[in-house]
Structures are given as structure tokens and as C-alpha cells.
Amino acid sequence: MSARDEILNKLRSRSRQPDTHPPAWRSRRHFDDLAERFAESLGKSKGEVIRAGSLDEAFEQLDQTLLALGARCVVANDEPPLSQIDLAARWPGMQWHIVGRTPGDLRGFCATADAGVSSVVAALAETGSVVVTSGPGKSRLATLLPPVHIALVPESCLTADLYTFTAARQGPPPAMQTLISGPSKTADIEQTMAVGVHGPKRFIVILYRD
């Protein structure tokens, strides 16, 4: 008998009377101001939040952030709202890799880039988390290998918490989905917090009204 059948048969022959599965837990959280809560929670885990009143203002904030970083090489996922503008034309002094459009070695570029820019599919107010996924034009490494990850987050994608997010999911999931709640960190050496052990050392969210 195969290992599979042996294990399943054993489980079936031993199982007790099945319990009724409990009904799904539904969110009990209500936040008067989702954006405010999001910013507060992400701040607690050392994420940075920049508020912007509009998409245009968000791009201006992105300008200033990249300038302040002194970024020269930037990788960007090819997704709205980033795909709505010509990044290379807006920042002619920088070297850009637009995922799926710029030819060449994506992985090598990500490994040496100064920053990675992406959008998100959702943001959870309670925990200050954003959700990024894989897909066409959406690189896993772009938000992971560079020392800084900048995410453009429209307020319309805010939801209360993990429960409201999972309850609203539709269709099959992408191959990769990550909830990001701050910069990469570790406390493995004497419980002392250190940021940027493997992932980005800085996680900057530009939260804009849309």
C-alpha cells in the first residue's frame, strides 16, 4: 500500500465521531478611521507611513522619498498606479527596471537596486499590514531584495483586519501572497531588535486618498 493510502486509512480507522466545524469567525473590529489606525499600527512595528491627499501628491512624495534615499537604481512592479506613469521619464537621472517590461536580468537588478516600488492589493488597518501578491508584472524579489521597499497604498484598499480580508477573498489565490507588517527584523541575538536581516531595512508606505 502506498504511504498515502496507509496514512489516510489509518486516520480514518482511528478517527472518533467527527465534531461539527465551528462557523467562521467574523471580524469584531470597528475603526472609525481606518487610515489612522493603519498608520498607528505600522508605526509600532517600525514601518514608515507618509500620508498624501491625492495620487499626484503620492507621486510627489515618492519623488522626495527616492531623492532623500539618494536612490540611483530602482525596481518597480508593473501595476497600477505605477503603470499609469512613465517612471523613467519622470526620473531621468535614475536607472529603472520595470518588471516585465525592462529587458535584462531582473534578479540581478533587484539584488543591487537601492529601492523596490510596488502597489498592494489590500491593507489591514488593525495590524498595519499590506498585502502584496505575485502575478504578471509583479515580482517577488522586487519588494524583497532591495534595502528599501516603498508601497503605494490607496485608502480605498484599506480593510479592518485579517478577518475582513479573508472573508472578502474571491477566486483562486495567486501563487504567492504576502502580508507585510513592517521592515524585516530579528531578535535572535539576545532579544535585541535589529532591522533588515534578510528583507528590506526600511518599509515605507505612501498612503494616499483616492
Binding site: 512595528s45 488593525e126 483562486p172
Partner: peptide, 24 residues
């Protein structure tokens, strides 16, 4: 475990990268 509301990264892997995924 660590007293965080959520860990920094919660990652779900659902199968290999799709044909049009740039990496994975």
C-alpha cells in the same frame, strides 16, 4: 509566540509560479 499583532511577513505559497509570473 512573539507578542506581535501579526508577524512581519505572513506568506502563502499556492503552487509554483504561474507561467507569466516574473519570478518564483
Amino acid at each position: 509566540s512573539t507578542g506581535q499583532p501579526l508577524s512581519i511577513y505572513t506568506t502563502a505559497i499556492t503552487g509554483p509560479a504561474k507561467a507569466d509570473d516574473p519570478d518564483g
